[in-house]
Amino acid sequence: MQRRAQREKRDQRAKRRNRVLVCAAAVPVMLVAAGCSSDSGSGDSTDKAAKAAASASASPSPTVQAAAYGKLPEPCKAFSKKTLEDLVPKGKSGKEGKSDDISTRGSCSWDSLDNNGVKGSQFRWLNVSMLRFESDVTRGPADKLAQEYFEKQVQEAQAVEGAKGVKTEPVAGTGDQATAVHYDLKKKEGTFKQQTVVARVENVVVTLDYNGAGLAGDKTPSGSDMLKDAKKAAKEAVDAVSEANGEGGGKAGGSASKTPSKAPSKSPSKSPSKSASKEASDEPSKSASSPSKKPASKS
């Protein structure tokens, strides 16, 4: 009986050792399983990050509508022979302004002195400036940039120092928008009648300055007649811009073209949009200084 009891005790102790060994062996298996589970989660996170990066790189870069007009006409050929005979009857060939990029910026001026001897003389000065804008991803579409510059030009024309009786009025049938500013400017040579017409067609701004005076006792010209001539010349210049880009001139009004593909803009070596924005500050109306200088050299 005693031996039997001893054997039962030994069997019980053996069973307990086996259970301990089985449990000990199970612990590494659980750790391995836990480790595999952790690695799997890390891999999923890495895959998600990689997919997000790939998606970001595949996203299209920002775009902006292309400029409608890609070039300018020769400014000294913007007017017909008859128009020049009417506005600057004694004028000779126009004087073209300097430009480092004729597809972006251009200007031309004419002056006329009709000498009537002891009765005095009639002076006229005509200037046309054209500035073309390119679309820019950071600054916006070209027509919007042109509109901003258009508004700036009108404000500058209204704020000329010494101007008397400044009046502003819209001009119909000239490009997408046009405004005329006219006033008197008294100088030692006489009273000058100044007309400034600012017009925008698509992404191009045309600024026309036209002034005149009766010198050495001659009568002061009619401001209303000069304004009528200035409006006619401004429309002619705007039509020249449209024609240079393959669009017919002489439109009754509104946009000259809404199809950018008809006049694709070429990218010059120097960024046109930057050039236009840089030169815009150099393109204000010359009407404040020109009247006094021009007649002085002729009288």
Rank of each mutant, 00 (worst) to 15 (best):
M1E: 04
A5V: 08
Q6P: 02
Q6T: 13
R7N: 04
D11A: 15
A14T: 14
A25R: 04
A25C: 15
A33D: 00
A34F: 07
D39A: 07
S40N: 05
G41P: 00
D44G: 11
A49E: 09
A50C: 07
A52D: 03
A56V: 08
V64G: 12
G70Q: 02
P73D: 01
K77G: 14
S80L: 01
S80Y: 04
L84P: 00
D86T: 08
K92S: 15
S93W: 04
S109K: 00
N115G: 02
S121I: 00
Q122Y: 01
M130R: 11
S135N: 05
S135E: 04
V137D: 07
T138I: 13
A142M: 00
D143A: 12
K144L: 13
L145F: 00
A146C: 07
K152L: 15
Q155K: 14
E169Q: 15
G173D: 04
K188N: 06
E189G: 09
Q195H: 07
E202P: 03
V206D: 07
L208Q: 04
D218F: 11
S222W: 05
A230P: 00
K231G: 01
D239S: 06
G249M: 05
T259H: 10
S261P: 00
S261L: 00
K274I: 04
K274V: 11
S277N: 07
K278I: 14
S289Q: 12
S290T: 10
S292D: 06
K293V: 11
A296D: 01
S297K: 11
S297Q: 08
